[in-house]
C-alpha cells in the first residue's frame, strides 16, 4: 500500500514514522512547502520522492492513502483534492478554522463513502477507553454533571506562526488543544446542545489563551471545561475529567481511571475501583510518541485495507467543529447561551 504525506512538520513526521513501519505500507512520497524540511528528508532518505506541490504529488504518485498534517486553514482544500481522486485520507485535527468551510467536503466524502479519519487520538488512550466502557456499561446511572480541564505550560509570550493567527488556525487554545477534550466529552456523554463560552486573549493578540465553557448535553447532563495553554507546572498537556452521576463518580485523566460506586453493580464493588496505566497497558507494533498514535495509525490503515471502522471520522470532527464555532460565537457575545 502506497502512502503519501502532505506536511512533514512535527505531526506529519510522527504519522509517517508509525505507518511506514506497518506491514504492507510503503511511504512513497512527501510534500511540504518548506524547503528546509524537504531538504532534510532528501538528504536522509534519498529514495523517497519529495514534492513542493501536493497536487503534483497526488497526480504523479497516485497513493492508496494520504496523511494531511498541515496548518488548519489548508486542511479542507487538501482533503477535497484527495476526495476528488477517491484517495482515503487521515487528517490532523482540528477539521477546519470554521465548520461552514467544511460542509461541501463532508457532502462529497459521504456521497462517495470514502474512508477518512481525523486525529482525535485521545480515543485510543487506555484510560479514556476504559472510562468510555464504564459509561456504556450503565453502572453509573444517569450522568448529572461533568467538570473538566485541559492545561499545558506552553505559551508565556507571544507565539509565532499559524497557530496564533485567527484566520489560519480558526482560534486559539479551544480549537488548537481543547478540541481533544471536547471530542472526549462528546464521545463519552453524547451530543452537545448548547454552550456558553468566555475567553481571554492574554499572550496572543488574535486568539484566546484561556477559555471557560459551560455545556448542556442533549441527554440532559451539564458540565464545564476550563482550558489554557498558559498554565504553569503542566509539563505535558494534561486532561482531567470528573463525571458525577446518579450512582457514583468517574475520575479520568491520561494516567488513570477511578470509579466510585455507592452500591456494588455489574461485578464492581461498592467504593473505589482504580485502573492505572500499568493495569491497562498492552504493547504496540511500533511506538513513536505514545501507543495512542500507533493505535490510531493502525486503525486508519486497517480501515483503508479492510473497511474497518475508525474511532473518529470526518463527520465526528465536523460535530466537534460545530461545538467550537458555538463556543466562539458565545464568547463574542459575552457568554450568551448559543445553540450548537
Amino acid at each position: 500500500m502506497k502512502l503519501a504525506i502532505i506536511g512533514i512538520g512535527k505531526m506529519g513526521m510522527l504519522h509517517a514514522g508509525i505507518m511506514n513501519a506497518l506491514d504492507d505500507v510503503e511511504l512513497c512520497a512527501v510534500s511540504d512547502s518548506t524547503n528546509f524540511l524537504l531538504n532534510g528528508v532528501k538528504s536522509l532518505k534519498p529514495e523517497l520522492n519529495t514534492y513542493d506541490n501536493y497536487v503534483k504529488m497526488l497526480d504523479k504518485e497516485q497513493p492508496d492513502a494520504v496523511v494531511i498534517a498541515t496548518p488548519v486553514f489548508l486542511h479542507v482544500p487538501m482533503a477535497e483534492e484527495c476526495t476528488k481522486r477517491n484517495i482515503p485520507f487521515f487528517l490532523e485535527k482540528p477539521l477546519s478554522p470554521a465548520s461552514d468551510q467544511a460542509v461541501e467536503l463532508i457532502e462529497m466524502v459521504e456521497s462517495k463513502d470514502l474512508v477518512t479519519m481525523v486525529g482525535y487520538m485521545m480515543r485510543y488512550v487506555d484510560t479514556y477507553m476504559k472510562a468510555k466502557a464504564i459509561l456504556e456499561s450503565g453502572v453509573l446511572g444517569k450522568v448529572i454533571t461533568v467538570h473538566s480541564t485541559i492545561y499545558v505550560a506552553q505559551l508565556f509570550r507571544k507565539g509565532k506562526g499559524w497557530r496564533y493567527s485567527k484566520e489560519q488556525a480558526g482560534g486559539g487554545v479551544v480549537i488548537g488543544q481543547a478540541t481533544h477534550l471536547i471530542d472526549l466529552l462528546q464521545w463519552m456523554l453524547g451530543p452537545v446542545e448548547r454552550v456558553t463560552g468566555h475567553t481571554i486573549n492574554w499572550y496572543s493578540e488574535e486568539v484566546e489563551d484561556f477559555a471557560h465553557v459551560h455545556f448542556e448535553f442533549k441527554n440532559g447532563a451539564m458540565g464545564w471545561m476550563d482550558s489554557s495553554w498558559s498554565i504553569r507546572h503542566h509539563r505535558l498537556m494534561q486532561i482531567n475529567i470528573e463525571i458525577h452521576a446518579e450512582k457514583g463518580n468517574l475520575f479520568v485523566c491520561d494516567d488513570y481511571a477511578k470509579l466510585y460506586l455507592d452500591e456494588p453493580a455489574d461485578g464492581f464493588n461498592a467504593g473505589w475501583t482504580n485502573w492505572y496505566n500499568p493495569d491497562l497497558f498492552h504493547g504496540v507494533e511500533i511506538d513513536v510518541g505514545g501507543p495512542q498514535y500507533s493505535r490510531q495509525g493502525i486503525a486508519f490503515i486497517d480501515a483503508v485495507k479492510n473497511g474497518k471502522p475508525v474511532a473518529s471520522d470526518l463527520r465526528n470532527a465536523f460535530e466537534v467543529q460545530k461545538i467550537v464555532d458555538a463556543i466562539y460565537k458565545s464568547a463574542e457575545n459575552h457568554g450568551q447561551p448559543t445553540d450548537v
Partner: peptide
C-alpha cells in the same frame, strides 16, 4: 527514544 524511534519508523539507519 522519540528520535531513535522516529529514525526507526522512517527506516533511516544512517541517522
Amino acid at each position: 527514544d522519540a528520535l531513535t524511534d522516529l529514525a526507526l519508523g522512517w527506516d533511516m539507519p544512517d541517522v
